[in-house]
Simulated assay, not measured.
Amino acid sequence: MNAFDVLGDPVRRRILMALAESERRSGDIVEIVQGEFGISQAAVSQHLKILRDSGFARVKVDEQRRIYSLDSRPLQEVDEWLDRFRAFWEPKLGALDTEIARGKKMRQTKGQPEGQPEGQPKA
């Protein structure tokens, strides 16, 4: 299974997000995924197997528990593949950053508090 097939599934993306925060016991991962997606423990185990087999996750056994952690190497490969497309969106994101900064500066010079919509009275 290629990296984009792995990342194409929302359950696997959620597991990777959890692993990006910290390593997790398999039971904790099941709890997170079941709470958000309502799938069985067996289905979560299948997703974890796919993540292990495709190199996105590592597992170590600690007595009776399996502890999962993120392996970032496949994500680096995805990043390298995406690199050829960055030229399409980076100038637009740069322009957006400029406009956001300009808007913040205008609000500050008008005395408008940060995060306060224009036209709203100060609290």
Rank of each mutant, 00 (worst) to 15 (best):
N2P: 12
F4K: 10
V6R: 06
L7G: 06
P10T: 12
V11I: 15
R13L: 14
I15L: 12
L16H: 02
L16K: 03
M17V: 13
M17C: 07
L19G: 00
L19K: 03
S22T: 07
R24C: 13
R25D: 13
G27F: 04
G27L: 10
E31A: 14
Q34C: 06
E36V: 04
E36G: 01
F37D: 02
I39H: 05
S40A: 11
V44A: 10
S45W: 02
Q46K: 13
K49T: 13
K49A: 12
K49Q: 15
D53E: 15
S54V: 03
G55N: 03
A57L: 05
A57F: 01
K60N: 00
K60E: 15
V61S: 02
Q64V: 10
I67W: 00
I67Y: 04
S69H: 01
S69G: 06
S69Q: 03
L70W: 02
D71R: 07
S72V: 15
P74Q: 12
E77F: 01
D79T: 10
E80I: 12
W81L: 14
W81E: 15
D83W: 07
F85Q: 05
F85W: 14
R86L: 09
R86A: 13
A87W: 06
W89A: 11
P91Y: 12
G94A: 13
D97R: 14
D97Y: 08
T98A: 13
T98M: 09
T98R: 09
R102S: 09
Q108Y: 07
K110N: 13
G111D: 03
G111V: 05
Q112D: 05
E114I: 08
G115Y: 08
G115R: 05
Q116M: 14
Q116R: 11
E118C: 03
G119F: 04
G119V: 00
Q120N: 05
P121N: 09
K122V: 15
A123L: 08
A123Q: 11
A123R: 10
